[in-house]
């Protein structure tokens, strides 16, 4: 549905987007993740025709965005970083205008505007001026504008920025709902959002794609080793638990740290891919210690994000190279 092939964007000596390639299948939600200035917005602007690329090709719904921009734009809904609202129009007028420039007129226009307002929950401000709306409403009116003409592809630049927690949940639900009929690209800073809403993640840093994968695989793939955190009650027993845990197969290292309330926390590291939780639990129980808590410490998306975007150049290249073909 969306295909980006080796897109590069240069501003004079600055390369904002460097040879970015990825694909989004029909009905999928793709999360676009990266620090500020990574090139997320630029890539999105290229896809929506607001900017042009120095090199490369991009297809939206089968149309080349550079060769057949009007056809591609007809099938794209775009919510830029700042919702593009005209302050002197009421929400209803604004959406009617947005409908008209998308070729929706007369009877259909009213229905579409009403439907989009209902979907994004902005009916109660329908007759207020866009300039007087709160950030949350602006964002949702912007979203209403993007889905108004029922496009195949939705490109949302930080759709939940500036919303309160309740609205964020509602918007995420809405985006998930939309995913069935629409193919969605969304960019965000909020990492859990990607884990919750997206089926695939593109991590981009300094204009380059650093990783493309599902959120689950990403969390799995980057663990060199897995860590289990075990909280124990010593109950006066000796330190055999530590020894016992260390003898479990595949366990590479065990560190014990006493906590302030007299408990002990064990960090058990094991080989990648091995699940040693039940063995560790058994070892602890047989040693006579009380097992209070056992948590598998998966690397959160945040850790991965930081690792991918802050690590040194050569590492980045390693991570990126196999992914480019994967995309």
């Amino acid at each position: 549905m969306i295909e980006v092939q080796h897109v590069t964007k240069r501003y004079g000596p600055v390369t904002a987007v460097d040879d970015v390639s990825f694909r989004v299948d029909s009905g999928q939600i793709l999360g676009f993740l990266g620090p500020n200035g990574a090139g997320k917005t630029t890539t999105m602007r290229i896809l929506t025709g607001c900017a042009s690329a120095t090199e490369g090709q991009a297809f939206v719904a089968g149309y080349d965005v550079f060769e057949e921009p009007v056809e591609a734009k007809r099938r794209t809904g775009y919510l830029p970083e700042t919702p593009p609202l005209y302050p002197d129009m009421t929400v209803r007028e604004y959406l009617a205008f947005a409908a008209r420039i998308n070729g929706i007129r007369s009877v259909a226009q009213r229905e579409r505007v009403a439907a989009a307002m209902a979907r994004t929950n902005v009916e109660d401000v329908a007759d207020r001026h866009c300039g007087k709306l709160s950030k949350g409403y602006r964002q949702r009116v912007g979203l209403a504008q993007a889905i108004l003409h029922n496009p195949d592809v939705l490109i949302l630049d930080e759709p939940t920025a500036g919303l309160d927690p309740k609205q964020i949940i509602e918007t995420r639900e809405l985006i998930k709902e939309l995913a069935g009929d629409h193919t969605i690209i969304l960019s965000t800073h909020i990492l859990p959002e990607v884990a919750q809403t997206c089926e695939r993640v593109v991590i981009i840093n300094k204009g380059r794609v650093v990783a493309v994968d599902t959120p689950e695989n990403l969390t799995g793939r980057l663990r060199g080793s897995e860590t289990i955190r075990v909280q124990l009650d010593p109950r006066g027993a000796d330190e055999t638990a530590v020894v016992q845990a260390a003898t479990v197969p595949n366990v590479s290292n065990v560190t014990a740290t006493p906590t302030q309330d007299g408990l002990v926390t064990l960090e058990v590291q094991c080989e990648k891919g091995a699940d040693v939780r039940s063995e560790v639990a058994r070892a602890v129980i047989t040693s006579g210690w009380g097992l209070l808590e056992l948590t598998s410490m998966r690397m959160s998306l945040e850790d991965i994000f930081l690792e991918l975007t802050t690590s040194e150049e050569p590492r980045e290249e390693d991570a990126e190279a196999p992914e480019a073909t994967d995309a």
Binding site: R45, T48, G49, C50, V70, E71, K73, R74, T76, Y78, P80, E81, T82, P83, P84, L85, Y86, P87, A98, I101, N102, G103, Q145
Partner: peptide
């Protein structure tokens, strides 16, 4: 300045 140009640029208008 206000960014509304993106609404026009991303719409199917030439």
């Amino acid at each position: 300045r206000s960014g509304t140009i993106e609404l026009l640029l991303s719409s199917p208008l030439t």
